[in-house]
Design a binder for these strands. Structure first.
Lengths: 140, 140
DNA sequence: CCGGTCGATGCAATGGTATTGCATTGTTTA
DNA sequence: TAAACAATGCAATACCATTGCATCGACCGG
């Protein structure tokens, strides 16, 4: 089809706008998770607040997921197609490199099932591994 | 012994001071992890920056561990005695209740071993589960 | 064609948390 | 006693996230 980016937004019930297409494009091209400031830097002429609200919209609609990697800033990455706003199905591990401060999604490593004590109602699980990524580990 | 709090600090090579003993006392008495603001609130007359540096000292010495639970503020909780500044041995799951915003350590739930792709050098693993704690789940 | 409504955008301003600089206090040590 | 050092406290700063408000533009009914 002619406009795959637009279709991606429409499938999530997000009105396609130029700004949203730009943000989505950046997210699709980057292999790592991006913070608000990262996206802003890719789109030199974009307003910070608008990007912020765009990412919030994407998150609410289940298009991207938030990653709190401990870097101080929340990062965002595209969700798997099976994810919905209500249920985040794409439970994978995130790796935060303390050297280059990049956060990578590791879809091949699922979050293992946990046996919590009784009474806890789980909504979401976040598993972040910190260390050196292959590139930085080799460069030391 | 007469001063178990002092001995705890000395064992970690931390000079005991009144302020540090107070902070340690608060951490020991609270069952949940505490943020900087939480500790500050327990110690009405304590300076925020001093508490901050006290917690930083404790973290550096391996007495407490940092928990980034996504609440926006970093929280702190006492480590197991086996932990050292170099190696954090007490790898357990943390539970963040989205209702009361309290973070609990779940020592009974260890972090499972992960099979990461080759090349990654792991330093630290953080597993935070979000949802409703037993108290809040029952109160709904 | 016109006016109204609504969503999206952009600027300004605010709030909260973490952090640093510097002066002061207090304790140890020569 | 004086110097040295650690700990403390105040002031100021930086950074990220968020909200309020005004504007723009598309869509819709009349």
């Amino acid at each position: 089809m002619a406009h795959p980016l637009e279709d991606t937004l429409i499938a999530r019930q997000i009105t396609p706008t130029p700004m949203r297409l730009l943000v989505l494009d950046v997210l699709q091209k980057e292999p790592t998770a991006l913070s608000l400031a990262d996206v802003e830097q890719h789109l030199k002429h974009a307003d910070r607040i608008t990007v912020h609200r765009t990412l919030k919209t994407f998150t609410d609609k289940g298009l991207v997921h938030r990653i709190e990697d401990g870097s101080g800033a929340v990062k965002f990455a595209l969700c798997a197609p099976a994810c919905t706003p209500e249920l985040h199905r794409d439970l994978h591990v995130h790796f935060f490199c303390v050297r280059c401060r990049e956060t990578a999604c590791l879809p091949a490593v699922p979050v293992p099932a946990l046996a919590l004590p009784g009474g806890y109602q789980v909504q979401e699980t976040s598993l972040v591994v910190k260390g050196h990524c292959p590139r930085c580990a080799g460069a030391v």
